[in-house]
Each structure stands twice: as structure tokens, then as C-alpha cells.
């Protein structure tokens, strides 16, 4: 499944990093503590977080993530979007809480084979 498939399936608004939408997603991770995410997020994952500042793009790059979903109706800073566009890291928005969107992703198979 690709980031673009997730956007379509779950009606996520893609606000940045459109160049990376065709990247394959191989897992998922929920987390708002950046050190925890750095320690535990699997490569190629989609990351669900409420953090909106531009450092999330650095974390996504270093963990070789496929995409970021900002949950709970959070909206990224303009600098975050600019950085994500530059690096091709898709940022998608959902009004659902992390728990709810994670459950839906899991139901369609994201992160089940590990």
C-alpha cells in the first residue's frame, strides 16, 4: 500500500511532500515523544503524531519513513510543509485521533506483517 492509497482510502488531506506519495508503506508507528519515535519507529512506516513543528521532517528522514499523518485535526507549521516539500515526505491530515486512525490502518493490513 502506498501513501497515496491511504490518502484516498481514509480521506486524508495531503498538505505537503506530494513527491513522496508513491512510496510503499511497510508499517506504522504512533508517537509524540520524538526520542521514543527515533528509538522504535520501523523504517518505511507511516507515522501518526500530533507534533506539527518542522523537526518531525528530520525524524521522518532519519528513520526513512514513508509518510506522516497528523492526527486530531492538527495542522503543520508553514516551515514544516516547506521542509516536507523539499524532502518529499508526505504530510497528510486527519481529524481522527491517533488511536482511531491506527485501528483503521491496521484493519487494512498496515503494519501487520512484521
Amino acid at each position: 500500500m502506498k501513501a497515496s492509497d491511504l490518502a484516498k482510502e481514509f480521506k486524508l488531506t495531503v498538505v505537503a511532500g506530494k513527491d513522496g506519495l508513491e512510496r510503499e508503506i511497510s508499517g506504522g508507528h504512533c508517537g509524540d515523544l520524538l526520542s521514543e519515535v527515533m528509538a522504535n519507529a520501523p523504517i518505511g512506516c507511516v507515522w501518526l503524531t500530533i507534533q506539527i513543528h518542522q523537526n518531525i521532517v528530520a525524524v521522518a528522514l532519519l528513520k526513512e519513513m514513508a509518510a506522516i499523518i497528523l492526527t486530531g485535526g492538527n495542522v503543520p507549521d508553514a516551515e514544516t510543509c516547506a521542509k516536507a516539500d523539499e524532502e518529499g515526505i508526505p504530510i497528510m491530515l486527519s481529524s481522527l485521533r491517533s488511536y482511531e486512525i491506527a485501528g483503521r490502518l491496521y484493519n487494512v493490513g498496515v503494519g501487520r506483517e512484521r
Binding site: D32, L33, S35, M38, A39, Q51, H53, N55
Partner: peptide, 12 residues
């Protein structure tokens, strides 16, 4: 608030 300061950095 930005998600830092968990006290995990140096142990990691």
C-alpha cells in the same frame, strides 16, 4: 510540548 525532554536521548 514539542515532544522533546523525555529523558531518553542520552540512554538511547
Amino acid at each position: 510540548e514539542m515532544g522533546f525532554g523525555a529523558g531518553m536521548g542520552l540512554p538511547n
